[in-house]
Amino acid sequence: MVHDTQRMDAIAERMAEDEVAGRSLWADARSRFVKNKAAMFGLFLLIFVVLFALFGSHLAQWSNEELDYNVMGVVAQEGGPSMANGHYFGVDELGRDLFARTVQGTQVSLAVGFVGALVAVVVGTIYGATAGYVGGRVDQIMMRMVDILMAIPYMFVLILILVMYGRSMIALFVGLGLISWLEMSRIVRGQTLSLKNREFIEAARATGVSGVTIIRRHIVPNLLGVIAVYATLLVPLMILTESFISFLGLGVQEPLTSLGALISEGAGTIAYGTIWQLGFPLLFFCLTLFGFFFVGDGLRDALDPKDR
């Protein structure tokens, strides 16, 4: 027996030594994400854009509201990008520094994108998980409502809201929030349906855990991957929507600006040869969207490897 005990100890020791650090689902996903070149490229783009939005104003030599009287009226000849007078991206047609304006526009566009996606995550997850978990007639009615809301051309309704309730950031956030969660709730509901008959949910229910707790502790954590992917892809869609409205001149009002509003201004003045007014906002717009799309696709490949 003594002999056996020793052997058991030895085995136990060896097993403890050999034990490899367990790899969680998230660690797996991270390693897949890091290996994905397009996704990493997108991540670098995003980091660059976010840093630009956060710290760009420290680099700017002019504020976004100052008028440069030296170039006013001769914007087409003198207002181009120049290191000498501190207008790195040139000036707009009023003589305001385009670098500072682009920083501000990027901030507003990113904020709109993040807030829209955040609303979608919170509302869409709660709504979809509830509909999917409760099921039956409640589910039918809740999802029919989503169907109906999705069939409405939301851009027109959004503009209607903005015009009637003042074109402020708050109205914009509310309007975007109203539409952004619809698709998310559908996706979450579908995933919840496939989860809710699994054994661990059944076990939780058998031990008397309440429905709310099951959704919060057992269902939502299992959906985080899907939610993360979809939220990342939703941010650029929100930015696109806001830019579309701003392009029409119906979005945020001066002195606030967004990338869409800047593109609109630039597009209106290309005939005078001030191409930088279109070029720089457009560049940051495209970088932002590319970044989010690449990262979103990368996340999808990383978190949902069955597609490959």
Binding site: F247, I270, L278, L289
Partner: peptide, 14 residues
């Protein structure tokens, strides 16, 4: 993906 109508339009005119 990053060339929606309001980006295409000014580029085309340009």
């Amino acid at each position: 993906q990053v060339l929606p109508n309001f980006v295409m339009a000014p580029i085309l005119v340009l």
